[in-house]
Structures are given as structure tokens and as C-alpha cells.
Simulated assay, not measured.
Amino acid sequence: MPAHKLASHHVVLKGPNLVKEIFYGISLGLMAGGIWKTYHWNQQRKTREFYELLDRGEISVVHEEE
């Protein structure tokens, strides 16, 4: 193929699609927020379980001397 025909088949690069970028940003933000909230709910559950056990007397934070 002659060089002048190859040059006419080059790929034209477009700029970023603003709507698509906003959609990707919102999606990533919601996923990260969901993971963060799940982590916090797990921490709250662990803390709540600890204090429930402490209130029932099943565990103690005082070291028992032997």
C-alpha cells in the first residue's frame, strides 16, 4: 500500500466524554462508600457485642490474679 493511503486510516482520538466520566466517578464513589459503611457496621457490631458480654458478666476487663 502506498504511504499516502496508510495515513488516511489513522485513528482519531476524542476527548473524554463528560457524562461517562461523571457516571464512572459516581459509581466508584458509591462502591467505596458502601465498602466503608460495611466496615463501620462490622466495627459497631463487634463493639456492641463486647459491651453486651461485659454487661451480662460473661467477660471481664479486670485481670484475675491467681
Rank of each mutant, 00 (worst) to 15 (best):
residue 52 E to A: 11
residue 49 E to F: 10
residue 24 Y to V: 13
residue 2 P to L: 00
residue 63 H to A: 03
residue 20 K to F: 06
residue 5 K to D: 00
residue 11 V to G: 00
residue 54 L to R: 03
residue 63 H to G: 03
residue 1 M to W: 01
residue 20 K to N: 09
residue 61 V to W: 01
residue 30 L to K: 14
residue 57 G to A: 05
residue 21 E to V: 15
residue 60 S to C: 02
residue 55 D to H: 02
residue 6 L to G: 09
residue 33 G to V: 08
residue 61 V to D: 03
residue 40 H to L: 10
residue 12 V to C: 13
residue 39 Y to E: 14
residue 13 L to H: 10
residue 64 E to H: 01
residue 34 G to L: 00
residue 65 E to C: 05
residue 28 L to E: 11
residue 18 L to W: 03
residue 15 G to H: 06
residue 10 H to D: 12
residue 47 T to M: 12
residue 44 Q to D: 15
residue 10 H to N: 09
residue 34 G to C: 04
residue 30 L to D: 13
residue 21 E to I: 15
residue 55 D to I: 06
residue 35 I to P: 02
residue 18 L to Q: 09
residue 58 E to I: 02
residue 1 M to K: 08
residue 16 P to I: 03
residue 15 G to V: 07
residue 16 P to Y: 01
residue 49 E to W: 06
residue 65 E to D: 13
residue 26 I to F: 08
residue 8 S to G: 02
residue 26 I to M: 08
residue 17 N to M: 00
residue 64 E to S: 05
residue 10 H to I: 09
residue 27 S to R: 15
residue 61 V to R: 07
residue 66 E to G: 03
residue 29 G to N: 10
residue 64 E to N: 02
residue 9 H to M: 08
residue 29 G to K: 10
residue 45 R to G: 01
residue 38 T to C: 11
residue 6 L to P: 05
residue 58 E to Q: 11
residue 33 G to F: 09
residue 30 L to M: 13
residue 15 G to R: 06
residue 64 E to K: 04
residue 66 E to F: 07
residue 45 R to P: 00
residue 11 V to H: 04
residue 36 W to A: 15
residue 17 N to R: 00
residue 46 K to W: 04
